[in-house]
């Protein structure tokens, strides 16, 4: 079994033990809140890991390389940003997909742009954002965020 998972669990166990002595009621509430978020995300995670398996076996690396490989340059950034913007889902689901893309030959900038746009840009939540903040803010923010995702991807390519 992976030791890092055990370490994280141990750290969280200690954190809960400390908070429990301070405030048992709030700690119980925290545990409940965590459990509810986890239960909410579990079906999505199952589906995503299922997808990762299919991806791993059925999608030829050549296809990923052609669209998101480093030799594709700007196209790979556009594809990464576009995929992340369309995809809607919890960030926890983005990481396994991103790792699969990397393994399949996608470039670091493309994968970084994919992750950043996944969490920052929401085509699906655009109607809700417009309703809360106004159409102007929602459109401007999502547009700028797509640009930011591509730029962050580029910068990641330079840094890493």
């Amino acid at each position: 079994m992976d030791p890092t998972g055990i370490v994280y669990l141990a750290v969280l166990g200690i954190a809960y033990a400390v908070y429990w002595r301070k405030s048992p009621a709030k700690s119980r509430k925290a545990l409940g809140a965590g459990a509810i978020s986890f239960a909410g995300i579990l079906p999505t995670l199952i589906a995503v890991f299922g997808l990762v398996g299919l991806f791993d076996v059925f999608v030829p690396p050549a296809l990923i390389e052609r669209w998101m490989g480093s030799s594709s340059g700007v196209l790979s950034l556009v594809v990464g940003t576009g995929l992340g913007s369309i995809a809607a889902g919890p960030p926890a689901a983005a990481y396994p997909i991103a790792a699969t893309l990397l393994k399949g030959g996608a470039s670091t900038p493309a994968v970084a742009a994919f992750i950043v746009s996944w969490v920052l840009v929401g085509f699906v939540s655009l109607p809700m954002e417009s309703k809360v903040f106004g159409v102007r803010f929602a459109v401007l923010r999502n547009g700028l965020s797509m640009l930011a995702a591509a730029l962050i991807g580029l910068a990641m390519g330079v840094v890493l």
């Binding site: 750290v11 969280l12 809960y16 700690s27 925290a30 965590g34 459990a35 986890f38 396994p96």
Partner: peptide
């Protein structure tokens, strides 16, 4: 392989939330 980490993350999320 990541199940323990996911569980730890959501336990931490609960703490932050409260």
């Amino acid at each position: 392989s990541v199940a323990p980490i996911i569980i730890a993350v959501f336990a931490g999320l609960g703490l932050v939330q409260v």
